[in-house]
Amino acid sequence: MKKYRILFKYIMKLLLKLRVNYILNFFKNVSQVTAKNVSQVTTRIITLQIKSLKRSAAGIFPGLLLLLILALTAILVLFSGSAPVQAHELLIEGVTEGKVSASFDDGTPAIQVDILVYHEGELQYEGRTDRQGALELPEGMEWDKIEARDNYGHRALYTEEEEDTFRLPRWAGALIGLSFLLLVAAFSGYRQK
Protein backbone atom coordinates (compact mmCIF):
# COMPACT_ATOMS: atom_id res chain seq x y z
CA MET A 1 0.00 0.00 0.00
CA LYS A 2 2.90 2.31 0.80
CA LYS A 3 4.08 2.21 -2.78
CA TYR A 4 0.74 3.44 -4.04
CA ARG A 5 0.66 6.23 -1.54
CA ILE A 6 4.05 7.37 -2.79
CA LEU A 7 2.80 7.05 -6.35
CA PHE A 8 -0.24 9.13 -5.55
CA LYS A 9 1.89 11.81 -3.90
CA TYR A 10 4.09 11.99 -6.93
CA ILE A 11 1.13 12.34 -9.23
CA MET A 12 -0.21 15.16 -7.08
CA LYS A 13 3.14 16.90 -7.10
CA LEU A 14 3.36 16.43 -10.83
CA LEU A 15 0.02 18.09 -11.18
CA LEU A 16 1.09 20.99 -9.00
CA LYS A 17 4.43 21.75 -10.60
CA LEU A 18 5.98 19.88 -13.45
CA ARG A 19 9.66 19.37 -12.82
CA VAL A 20 12.05 17.05 -14.53
CA ASN A 21 13.22 15.24 -11.40
CA TYR A 22 9.66 14.53 -10.36
CA ILE A 23 8.96 12.99 -13.69
CA LEU A 24 12.09 10.87 -13.42
CA ASN A 25 11.16 9.72 -9.91
CA PHE A 26 7.65 9.02 -11.06
CA PHE A 27 8.85 6.64 -13.72
CA LYS A 28 11.22 5.04 -11.22
CA ASN A 29 8.25 4.33 -8.95
CA VAL A 30 6.13 3.08 -11.75
CA SER A 31 8.82 0.60 -12.73
CA GLN A 32 8.79 -0.72 -9.15
CA VAL A 33 5.11 -1.52 -9.35
CA THR A 34 5.25 -5.00 -10.82
CA ALA A 35 2.74 -6.39 -13.26
CA LYS A 36 1.24 -8.55 -10.50
CA ASN A 37 0.55 -5.51 -8.35
CA VAL A 38 -1.09 -3.72 -11.23
CA SER A 39 -3.49 -6.58 -11.82
CA GLN A 40 -4.24 -6.72 -8.09
CA VAL A 41 -5.02 -3.04 -7.99
CA THR A 42 -7.29 -3.19 -11.02
CA THR A 43 -9.22 -6.23 -9.74
CA ARG A 44 -9.63 -4.49 -6.39
CA ILE A 45 -11.02 -1.40 -8.06
CA ILE A 46 -13.38 -3.50 -10.18
CA THR A 47 -14.67 -5.51 -7.19
CA LEU A 48 -15.22 -2.31 -5.23
CA GLN A 49 -17.10 -0.86 -8.17
CA ILE A 50 -19.34 -3.94 -8.45
CA LYS A 51 -19.96 -3.88 -4.70
CA SER A 52 -21.09 -0.26 -4.70
CA LEU A 53 -23.21 -0.92 -7.79
CA LYS A 54 -24.89 -3.84 -6.06
CA ARG A 55 -25.46 -1.86 -2.89
CA SER A 56 -27.10 0.96 -4.79
CA ALA A 57 -29.22 -1.36 -6.91
CA ALA A 58 -30.28 -3.66 -4.11
CA GLY A 59 -32.77 -1.25 -2.61
CA ILE A 60 -34.55 -0.59 -5.89
CA PHE A 61 -36.31 -2.70 -8.46
CA PRO A 62 -34.35 -4.78 -10.95
CA GLY A 63 -35.61 -2.99 -14.00
CA LEU A 64 -34.22 0.30 -12.73
CA LEU A 65 -30.64 -0.73 -13.43
CA LEU A 66 -31.31 -1.56 -17.04
CA LEU A 67 -33.65 1.37 -17.41
CA LEU A 68 -30.97 3.76 -16.27
CA ILE A 69 -28.50 2.41 -18.82
CA LEU A 70 -31.10 2.52 -21.56
CA ALA A 71 -32.46 5.93 -20.67
CA LEU A 72 -28.98 7.42 -20.54
CA THR A 73 -28.09 5.94 -23.92
CA ALA A 74 -31.39 7.06 -25.39
CA ILE A 75 -30.90 10.59 -24.07
CA LEU A 76 -27.35 10.65 -25.42
CA VAL A 77 -28.50 9.44 -28.82
CA LEU A 78 -31.51 11.76 -28.91
CA PHE A 79 -29.69 14.90 -27.90
CA SER A 80 -26.33 14.49 -29.59
CA GLY A 81 -26.62 16.16 -32.93
CA SER A 82 -23.98 14.15 -34.76
CA ALA A 83 -25.17 10.67 -33.85
CA PRO A 84 -27.67 9.32 -36.34
CA VAL A 85 -31.04 8.82 -34.70
CA GLN A 86 -32.56 5.89 -36.50
CA ALA A 87 -36.29 5.62 -36.45
CA HIS A 88 -38.73 2.91 -37.09
CA GLU A 89 -41.51 4.63 -38.89
CA LEU A 90 -41.64 4.72 -42.66
CA LEU A 91 -42.94 7.92 -44.24
CA ILE A 92 -43.68 9.20 -47.72
CA GLU A 93 -42.48 12.78 -47.76
CA GLY A 94 -44.43 13.75 -50.83
CA VAL A 95 -44.34 13.99 -54.60
CA THR A 96 -42.23 16.77 -56.12
CA GLU A 97 -41.47 17.10 -59.84
CA GLY A 98 -42.74 13.61 -60.56
CA LYS A 99 -40.58 12.00 -57.88
CA VAL A 100 -41.84 10.12 -54.84
CA SER A 101 -39.49 10.29 -51.88
CA ALA A 102 -39.67 7.94 -48.92
CA SER A 103 -37.76 8.15 -45.65
CA PHE A 104 -37.75 7.03 -42.06
CA ASP A 105 -39.10 9.55 -39.57
CA ASP A 106 -35.65 10.89 -38.70
CA GLY A 107 -34.93 11.83 -42.30
CA THR A 108 -32.73 8.95 -43.43
CA PRO A 109 -33.77 7.87 -46.93
CA ALA A 110 -35.69 4.61 -47.21
CA ILE A 111 -33.65 2.62 -49.73
CA GLN A 112 -35.07 -0.26 -51.80
CA VAL A 113 -38.65 0.24 -50.67
CA ASP A 114 -41.53 -0.91 -52.88
CA ILE A 115 -43.70 1.99 -54.06
CA LEU A 116 -47.22 1.26 -55.28
CA VAL A 117 -49.13 4.02 -57.08
CA TYR A 118 -52.94 3.85 -57.22
CA HIS A 119 -55.58 5.81 -59.09
CA GLU A 120 -59.26 5.29 -58.24
CA GLY A 121 -58.45 2.04 -56.49
CA GLU A 122 -56.44 0.53 -59.33
CA LEU A 123 -52.73 -0.15 -59.28
CA GLN A 124 -51.10 2.12 -61.87
CA TYR A 125 -47.38 1.75 -61.30
CA GLU A 126 -44.97 -0.22 -59.16
CA GLY A 127 -41.31 0.44 -58.50
CA ARG A 128 -38.46 0.59 -55.99
CA THR A 129 -36.75 3.58 -54.45
CA ASP A 130 -33.11 4.31 -55.22
CA ARG A 131 -30.24 5.16 -52.87
CA GLN A 132 -31.75 8.59 -52.19
CA GLY A 133 -35.06 7.00 -51.26
CA ALA A 134 -36.67 8.45 -54.41
CA LEU A 135 -38.60 6.91 -57.28
CA GLU A 136 -39.37 8.71 -60.54
CA LEU A 137 -42.95 8.31 -61.75
CA PRO A 138 -43.74 8.02 -65.50
CA GLU A 139 -44.67 11.37 -67.03
CA GLY A 140 -48.29 12.42 -66.87
CA MET A 141 -49.24 9.72 -64.40
CA GLU A 142 -52.41 10.31 -62.46
CA TRP A 143 -52.59 9.14 -58.89
CA ASP A 144 -54.58 9.67 -55.72
CA LYS A 145 -52.90 7.21 -53.36
CA ILE A 146 -49.32 6.07 -52.95
CA GLU A 147 -48.22 3.21 -50.75
CA ALA A 148 -44.71 2.33 -49.61
CA ARG A 149 -43.76 -0.98 -48.05
CA ASP A 150 -40.57 -2.86 -47.36
CA ASN A 151 -39.81 -6.45 -46.46
CA TYR A 152 -39.46 -5.73 -42.75
CA GLY A 153 -43.03 -4.97 -41.82
CA HIS A 154 -43.02 -1.20 -42.45
CA ARG A 155 -45.69 0.57 -44.43
CA ALA A 156 -46.65 4.13 -45.27
CA LEU A 157 -49.62 5.68 -47.07
CA TYR A 158 -49.84 9.03 -48.85
CA THR A 159 -52.86 10.71 -50.38
CA GLU A 160 -53.09 13.95 -52.28
CA GLU A 161 -55.22 15.86 -49.83
CA GLU A 162 -53.24 14.76 -46.79
CA GLU A 163 -52.47 17.57 -44.38
CA ASP A 164 -49.49 17.61 -42.12
CA THR A 165 -50.56 15.74 -39.03
CA PHE A 166 -49.24 16.67 -35.62
CA ARG A 167 -46.48 14.41 -34.45
CA LEU A 168 -45.26 14.21 -30.89
CA PRO A 169 -41.46 14.66 -30.76
CA ARG A 170 -39.91 11.42 -29.70
CA TRP A 171 -38.13 12.82 -26.67
CA ALA A 172 -41.50 14.11 -25.43
CA GLY A 173 -43.09 10.71 -26.00
CA ALA A 174 -40.27 9.02 -24.12
CA LEU A 175 -40.58 11.49 -21.26
CA ILE A 176 -44.35 11.08 -20.95
CA GLY A 177 -44.18 7.29 -21.11
CA LEU A 178 -41.33 6.99 -18.64
CA SER A 179 -42.82 9.37 -16.13
CA PHE A 180 -46.15 7.56 -16.31
CA LEU A 181 -44.56 4.16 -15.63
CA LEU A 182 -42.32 5.54 -12.88
CA LEU A 183 -45.36 7.16 -11.27
CA VAL A 184 -47.24 3.85 -11.30
CA ALA A 185 -44.24 2.08 -9.77
CA ALA A 186 -43.66 4.73 -7.12
CA PHE A 187 -47.34 5.03 -6.20
CA SER A 188 -47.93 1.30 -5.83
CA GLY A 189 -44.66 0.91 -3.95
CA TYR A 190 -45.64 3.74 -1.61
CA ARG A 191 -49.10 2.28 -0.97
CA GLN A 192 -47.61 -1.02 0.12
CA LYS A 193 -45.39 0.68 2.65
Partner: peptide, 13 residues
Protein backbone atom coordinates in the same frame (compact mmCIF):
# COMPACT_ATOMS: atom_id res chain seq x y z
CA UNK B 1 -46.76 -3.88 -9.71
CA UNK B 2 -43.63 -1.74 -9.16
CA UNK B 3 -41.47 -4.49 -10.57
CA UNK B 4 -43.73 -5.01 -13.59
CA UNK B 5 -43.93 -1.30 -14.37
CA UNK B 6 -40.15 -0.85 -14.15
CA UNK B 7 -39.56 -3.69 -16.59
CA UNK B 8 -42.30 -2.22 -18.78
CA UNK B 9 -40.44 1.09 -18.76
CA UNK B 10 -37.28 -0.67 -19.93
CA UNK B 11 -39.21 -2.40 -22.72
CA UNK B 12 -40.88 0.86 -23.69
CA UNK B 13 -37.70 2.93 -23.96
Amino acid sequence: VPRISMVTAALFI
